[in-house]
Amino acid sequence: MSFALHRLPLRLTAGAFILNSGLNKLNLDAESAGGLQQMALNAFPQLEQLSAEDFGQYLAAGEITLGASLLAPFLPRKLVGLGLTAFAASLVWVYLRTPGMTEDDGIRPTQAGIGMAKDVFLLGIGLALLLEKKSATA
């Protein structure tokens, strides 16, 4: 396990963004948590078993944990890359499954979907961290 300077921008930008998102969700009211849960249900119907409040708290805790993990340079890049890839893939899946987020082709974002379509960048960062081959100098 070694620190590589070229990974710093990937981990800092994604980590700070996700950590901030999680911190902002710590005090979600039931209506806001319910709105997020309704979107998530489009892709993951099993989440219906949770109350809106529990969903909001679990989402906040997950984002805080992932964001902090990305910011911790001592954690292995493959581990945090795997976490980010799984998280971002689930966000992209929600985007693709939520009505009104994509154009008729099912991929390109509508005006309403642009905010969620940006999660593809997080997926790219996660894959970059996960798939990077160990080099002789890293």
Rank of each mutant, 00 (worst) to 15 (best):
F55R: 12
L127Y: 06
A88Q: 05
L8E: 06
L10F: 02
A68G: 13
T102F: 09
D54T: 11
P109R: 02
G115H: 00
M101A: 10
Q57G: 03
S32P: 09
K25V: 04
L75M: 06
E48W: 14
M101D: 07
V94G: 00
Q46E: 07
Q111S: 09
N27K: 10
L23E: 07
G124C: 03
L66S: 01
Y58M: 08
E63C: 05
A52T: 14
E48C: 11
G62W: 01
G62I: 07
E132W: 14
A138E: 12
G100W: 12
R7W: 02
L19K: 03
L75T: 13
L131F: 11
D105K: 04
L10S: 15
Q57D: 05
A30Q: 15
D29S: 02
L82M: 08
E31I: 14
L47Q: 03
K118D: 09
F74P: 15
Q46K: 10
V80W: 00
I18S: 07
F3Q: 03
I107H: 06
F74Q: 15
Q38K: 10
I18N: 07
G81A: 05
L131T: 14
S69W: 02
L36V: 05
W93R: 14
N24I: 13
F44N: 13
L19F: 13
A128P: 01
P45Y: 03
E53T: 11
K78Y: 08
K134C: 04
G34K: 13
L82F: 00
A68P: 01
K133G: 09
L23N: 02
A61G: 09
G106A: 01
L59V: 04
L10I: 05
T137C: 04
G35K: 15
A88L: 00
A61N: 05
L28N: 10
L123K: 14
F87D: 10
T102K: 06
G83I: 10
Y58N: 11
Q49E: 06
G34T: 10
A30G: 14
R11A: 13
L10K: 02
G15Q: 09
L59M: 05
G113S: 09
S21I: 03
T102G: 05
A86W: 02
L130N: 10
F55C: 14
A72I: 15
T110I: 04
L10H: 08
D104E: 09
G115M: 11
M116Y: 15
Q57K: 11
P76E: 12
L71S: 05
R77M: 12
L23F: 10
L5Q: 06
Q57A: 08
K133M: 07
E132R: 12
L59T: 00
D104H: 11
